[in-house]
């Protein structure tokens, strides 16, 4: 059971109310917390989680995230670990000079930076769409609450 949130000071509590209205722990000992400061337990009824989770739109959001994040993670892990593996186990190949004194090992290492920036850029582009969906899911919830 989430603890009941008191809005009135307990009788006999003489602690003065002070500080900012948004403090996590209200400075008066028994005062209520503002909504955004509630912990998970106290805030349990903020939404019907199962109902949100069952929304097709929310399921779509999760699927779309998975479709991007899983392959992107696999890609960057493989691309990154190819570097220490090749450098460690094929030093002959990696010391081959490609461009003046620059060898394969250095160029491959340098390419990692651009790989990381590239994946990050793609992620940000994809995430823009997810923000939109998440906003719609929340809006729907708020609307429905108004009707009920």
């Amino acid at each position: 059971m989430p603890p009941k949130i008191q809005t009135e000071p307990e009788p006999g509590d003489q602690t003065p109310e002070a500080g900012s209205a948004t403090d996590v722990a209200p400075l008066g000992r028994a005062g209520g917390k503002p909504g955004h400061e509630l912990t998970a337990d106290e805030d349990a009824d903020v939404a019907d989680w199962d109902r949100v989770a069952a929304e097709p739109e929310f399921k779509g959001l999760l699927a779309s995230k998975r479709r991007f994040i899983v392959p992107a993670t696999v890609f960057f892990v493989v691309y990154y670990f190819a570097l220490p593996l090749l450098v460690g186990y094929a030093p002959g190949l990696m010391s081959r000079r490609v461009f003046g004194p620059l060898n394969l090992a250095y160029l491959f290492a340098l390419s990692q930076f651009f790989m990381a920036w590239g994946v990050a850029a793609l992620y940000v582009r994809a995430a823009g769409g997810w923000d939109e969906t998440a906003r719609r899911v929340i809006e729907k919830l708020v609307e429905r609450r108004g009707e009920e």
């Binding site: 900012s20 955004h36 903020v46 949100v52 989770a53 959001l61 998440a134 929340i138 919830l141």
Partner: peptide, 20 residues
């Protein structure tokens, strides 16, 4: 777990900025 997934993916119920 369901609650965590919904919160983590939508930001529902997350603490907002406070003026200071």
């Amino acid at each position: 777990y369901t609650e965590l997934t919904v919160r983590a993916n939508t930001g529902l119920g997350a603490e907002k900025a406070t003026p200071h």
